[in-house]
Design a protein around this nucleic acid. Structure first.
Length: 471
RNA sequence: GUCCCCGUCGUCUAGCCUGGCCCAGGACACCGGCCUUUCACGCCGGCGACACGGGUUCAAAUCCCGUCGGGGACACCA
């Protein structure tokens, strides 16, 4: 039995992208499903574009999402000696050769070929010419790719894909400054780290045959490949910044829950019958690379939001309270204790889509400087209804146990004597207490807010009738 | 230009390998209703797709061929 070793190999040249996160998720799941190992490798060979900030963001975002790697991170930047050795070895074995063409020459040839309608591949200028003795011009190391035959990529998702070797050119392994290229390091490391499953984006499919050839040149055993279809924007173009937020951190900051994002990403391209909601445990049990679809999928923000609301609603209020804290608005009042916040959160929970949303909706609980919405006041705090509100206020004053059932009883009795329906009195109270026409149930709001603050808010409305002041 | 991948409701998808149970199922969104002190939640119902054309077959979303459409790759980026 072969144990699965999968890897995620991001380049620290940008924030962790939603597509990258999905790739990492599928790689991790492929390993977990078989009790294998998920390796993190940082492909930082491009020192010009790599930054510490991006590196940190990728690790942070992965941790936040729960994409825990079992091994690594390995850094390609720390392995240059090994690439150099291997470059030399391939050269001495004749599996690679020195190329003295300059970037300018190559660029010119590429353009000419393209203009003439030919493939812009390397023409093999230096492939068979031995360098002059004492040649001192800079050179690149190129892989001596076979010119005939075919190379087969047996992809777990795409099936058997056949490439003609004549379509493949001699790719550069080592640049003229001595640094190794992506294709070289990647293959070398995958072989060296004994990666058994390479899970990556679709966009790599066409350079896979070259890598297969390289694996063979390194006398390494071939890993399994799984090329995931890309994530598209609503216009069916690959998801990019112009479609809006693409960084994982942006979703974190927008108040999405990590498990909701994971669930969403998993369902984008993968399905298990009609199931929609998956816990980590279920994902690890049910996921199979083979079940991932072959076609690209469009990123659907509404579904993410729905899933997020679902997870939000299912959270224990205590946990949600901790998670929402960074999203709570700062007010003139001191930050309430956790148990009180949890009661507040419980009332808001079913109607919030995101933590950000929940934070915004909690405003009236956390401040006493509530603003009455003009339209709400105009409709429900008319001069004619204020006496009613005043009479209710005297009833409320005498309530000793300020909780939902008690308040409900007071209101019921009040409706009886006043001969009004609940809506007639509940809405004015709601506006007085929250400033809005929509809020959690009026009795829960009152209980959480407490007697003193409720009466004060009603008093304020009675003392300064908003409609009179307005007109 | 060359090579490669993909094509089921607006979107995510089940079904396709191993043809009939599919005049195509679920979910999001949308529309309508119920619940209800408001807004949500929830529940019920509705709208809505096999890209097209040929072929094989008693039978095709499922197999074969072609067309069209979308995307990707062709760097001293990864």
């Amino acid at each position: 039995m072969t144990t699965v070793r999968s890897r995620f190999a991001p380049s620290p040249t940008g924030f962790l992208h939603i597509g990258g996160a999905r790739t990492a998720l599928f790689a991790l799941l492929a390993a977990r499903q078989q009790s294998g190992t998920f390796v993190l490798r940082i492909d930082d060979t491009d020192m010009r574009r790599s930054t510490q900030e991006f590196h940190d963001d990728i690790l942070d975002s992965m941790q936040w999402l729960g994409l825990a790697w079992d091994e690594g991170p390995y850094y390609q930047s720390q392995r240059s000696a090994q690439y150099q050795d291997m470059g030399e070895r391939l050269l001495s074995q004749g599996r690679a050769f020195r190329c003295f063409c300059t970037p300018e020459e190559l660029e010119a040839k590429r353009k000419a070929a393209l203009a003439a309608g030919r493939s812009p591949a390397y023409d093999g200028t230096c492939r068979d010419s031995l360098p002059e003795p004492g040649e001192s011009r800079p050179y690149t190391v190129r892989f001596r790719s076979p010119k005939a035959g075919e190379t087969v990529v047996d992809d777990l998702l795409k099936g058997r894909v056949v490439f003609q070797n004549q379509e493949l050119d001699d790719l550069i392994l080592v640049r003229s400054d001595g640094s190794p290229t992506y294709n070289f390091c990647s293959v070398f490391d995958d072989a060296d780290l004994h990666i058994s499953h390479i899970v990556r984006g679709d966009d790599h499919l066409t350079n896979t045959p070259r890598q297969v050839l390289l694996f063979q040149a390194l006398d390494a055993s071939l890993p399994h490949f799984a090329h995931l279809p890309l994530i598209l924007g609503s216009d069916r173009a690959p998801l990019s910044k112009r479609h809006g937020a693409t960084a994982v951190r942006a979703y974190r900051e927008a108040g999405y829950l990590p498990d909701a994002l994971i669930n969403f990403l998993a369902r984008l391209g993968w399905a298990h019958g009609d199931d929609e909601v998956f816990s980590w445990q279920e994902l690890e049990e049910k996921f199979k690379l083979e079940d991932v679809g072959a076609s690209a999928g469009v990123f659907n923000p509404e579904k993410l939001e729905w899933l997020n609301a679902h997870y939000l609603n299912a959270r224990p209020a205590e946990q949600l309270t901790q998670e929402v804290k960074p999203f709570l608005p700062a007010t003139e009042r001191p930050v309430p204790a956790d148990d009180w916040l949890a009661r507040m959160v419980a009332t808001l929970q079913p109607r919030a889509k995101t933590l950000l949303d929940l934070g915004a909706q909690s405003q009236f609980y956390l401040t006493d400087n509530i603003t009455l919405e003009a339209k709400a006041a105009k409709k429900f705090l008319k001069a004619a209804t204020l006496p009613l509100l005043a009479r209710l206020r005297t009833q409320l004053r005498d309530v000793t146990i300020w909780d939902e059932p008690a308040l409900h009883r007071v209101f019921t009795a009040f409706m009886e004597t006043e001969q009004v329906k609940l809506g007639k009195i509940a809405q004015p109270v709601r506006v007085a207490l929250t400033g809005k026409t929509a809020s959690p149930g009026i009795f829960e709001v009152m209980e959480v807010l407490g007697k003193e603050r409720c009466l004060a808010r009603i008093d304020r409305v009675l003392a300064e009738p908003p409609v009179a002041a307005e007109s």
